[in-house]
Design a protein around this nucleic acid. Structure first.
Length: 560
RNA sequence: GCAGGCGUAGUGUAGUCUGGCAGCACAAGGGCCUUCCAAGCCCUUAGCCCGGGUUCAAAUCCCGGCGCCUGCACCA
């Protein structure tokens, strides 16, 4: 298996798919460049992702900034949960994670403040495990990259693209004409300052994500018709491995309906982009494994040379994110749920008597009156009323207001929507495609990447059989014609024809056109199929239309 | 961050122990040849991770740094 990894790394660098970034300065782990071939591969995957997940389901695509103020990440919980405390030994300089050092002295090392940690270290005389030296003060280590916005405002690089969607919920909800369910998608880079990233492309400090937040009303029944007969490979929290039809899984209550819906879509998507879905499963997180925001998470894992690798996560985040942003920002993030029938309810309402409030409170009178009107009267109100505005308490005497009982028509109520979040690790999918589409030909031993035509970076190679006798100029004409038509094609006249096919196979070019001597007589060319090496003759005239169909996979090579 | 291993053309490696002209293969570029799956011939490009030390002389020995790999830890 290690062998395979080495071959992928080799081919990736040699042919321009990807490589470690900043090589001339000896590299920085956790950062990668996509080369000319890889950048197109990634783009094609994302284009197809848009088709499948955004256009087909009518989602809203947005694009928000990668840098956000710390207020956003305080609200999201990342500022806390993404911080580790460390101490450094004064004599040997080694750094240690605090939670490990003090684990035996406290139940919840994660909940302590730096001061409390210092206290524990002092009290129990904890010393450096390496040299028994004394520790310096507690330092913070952020898994988020921090930066300054302007002169001194603290900012973070987003550790996920999701928050850009949550903070915009009220606007998006209106744009969507206040309808749920509402799906919002975002493609972009996210950043995590991993302590020591390994595993190549699979764990990067700057990486590409495609995320969806599907907002829905938890009280509206899920439409089962959305689930097909597709069979889902599941591994549940208690370790059971099952293959269940999506509908049956829903009936058994194993997961949320939208989670199952996305599992089905993901499986079809992965198959189409070239993943062997017999090496795919959905693994449910254990409770203690869940992220701080999650109620239930299923990882879509792909079997690679590294073992089972999480490539996509489907998280049921409940109302966590919107509730937090509502609390921290003070902005109403709720949606409206209409009742089937409108209800008539009796409510008590305070009516302020302005002629008494005015003289007494002067400029504050209007504010106090509004606050009184907005009070939720759950119990009887009488006597002096205490009204709080901006932290100050105002005492309103009994005679300055009246309580009246009125009938009110209630057509619905406000609630915080729930969220299902399918989150795609694009780089992991790209890498998985490389591993799953790589093979070596039995006869010659040379290497092939079996990319699906739709995601193949280069769709067609155009070769003159001999680079003389005018074959080269005909081939160049065909190349131009294809390029003008929006088909990514390239020309190669170097070395023998076999060598050129081999080069094309290495970067997964699905079709090769060869101009030979017969072309000069009857204007036909050969087309060669990468996966079978079979060839057919086609007329030059309908080459463009046929190739288009082949690339879109509307036509198979066998049908030519 | 810890422990171990490693760092030589684009890629893979020899040379390091025992200091003395840095070699091979593949790939790439040019040319000749060639009528369909990495053919052959000629030519070319291109390298000792960085810094310091020892030495007449360092890829080789010593020190420091950086990076990569494996394991541990970490992995929202």
């Amino acid at each position: 298996m290690k062998e395979l990894r080495a071959k992928i790394v080799d081919i990736a660098k040699r042919r321009g798919i990807y490589w470690g970034a900043y090589e001339i300065y000896s590299g920085v782990s956790g950062f990668y460049d996509y080369g000319p071939v890889g950048a197109l591969l990634k783009k094609n995957i994302l284009d197809y992702w848009l088709e499948e997940f955004v256009y087909k389901d009518g989602l809203l695509l947005i694009d928000s900034p990668a840098i956000g103020p710390d207020s956003v990440y305080k609200a999201s919980g990342h500022a806390d949960k993404f911080t580790d405390y460390m101490v450094r030994c004064n004599s040997c300089g080694h750094a240690f994670r605090v939670d490990e050092l003090i684990a035996e002295y406290t139940d919840n090392p994660d909940a302590l403040s730096p001061e409390e940690i210092n206290e524990i270290i002092q009290k129990h005389e904890i010393r450096c495990p390496d040299c028994n030296g004394e520790f310096g003060p507690v330092e913070e280590f952020h898994l988020m990259f921090s930066t300054k916005i302007g002169l001194d405002k603290l900012g973070f690089l987003r550790p996920e693209t999701a928050q850009g969607i949550f903070v915009n919920f009220p606007t998006l909800y209106r744009v969507n004409r206040e309808k749920l369910p509402m799906g919002v998608a975002q493609i972009g880079r996210a950043y995590r300052n991993e302590i020591s990233p390994r595993q190549g492309m699979l764990r990067q400090r700057e990486f590409n994500m495609a995320e969806i937040e599907l907002f829905f009303d938890p009280e509206t029944e899920f439409n089962k018709e959305l689930l097909g007969d597709i069979v889902l490979p599941l591994k549940t929290m208690d370790g059971a491995e099952l293959k269940l039809r999506a509908k049956d899984a829903y009936n058994s209550g194993i997961a949320n309906g939208y989670t199952l819906y996305y599992m089905g879509k993901i499986l079809r998507f992965l198959e189409r982009v070239g993943i062997d879905i017999s090496r795919v499963r959905f693994r449910q997180h254990h409770r203690e494994e869940l992220a701080h925001y999650s109620r239930d998470t299923w990882d879509c894992e792909i079997l690679l040379s590294y073992g089972w690798v999480e490539a996509i996560g489907i998280s049921y985040r409940g109302d966590y994110d919107l509730s937090r942003h509502m609390k921290y920002s003070g902005v109403d993030m709720r949606a409206f749920r209409k009742f089937g029938k409108e209800k008539i309810v009796q409510i008590n309402k305070i009516v302020p008597r302005m002629e008494l409030l005015g003289p007494r409170f002067k400029a504050m009178a209007m504010k106090i009156a509004r606050a009184m009107e907005d009070m939720e009267l759950t119990e009887e109100v009488s006597g002096t009323l205490r009204v709080e505005i901006d932290g100050r308490i105002y005492e309103v005497p009994e005679e300055a207001y009246e309580v009246i009982s009125i009938e009110k028509k209630v057509t619905g109520e406000r609630f915080v929507p729930h969220v299902i979040e399918p989150s795609f690790g694009i780089d992991r999918i790209v890498y998985a495609i490389l591993e799953h589409s790589f093979y070596e030909r039995e006869d010659s031993g040379y290497k092939v990447l079996r990319f699906a035509p739709q995601i193949a970076p280069v769709k067609v190679g155009v070769f003159p059989l001999m680079s003389k006798d005018g074959l080269d100029t005909i081939a160049m004409d065909i190349l131009k014609m294809l390029r003008i038509s929006g088909i990514n094609a390239y020309y190669d006249d170097s070395g023998s024809i076999g060598r050129r096919y081999a080069r094309a196979d290495e970067i997964g070019v699905p079709y090769c056109i060869t101009v030979d001597y017969q072309t000069k007589e009857d204007s036909t060319v050969t087309i060669r199929h990468r996966d079978t090496t079979e060839q057919k003759r086609l007329s030059r005239d309908n080459l463009r239309d046929l190739l288009r169909k082949l690339v879109l996979e509307e036509l198979k090579f066998e049908e030519l």
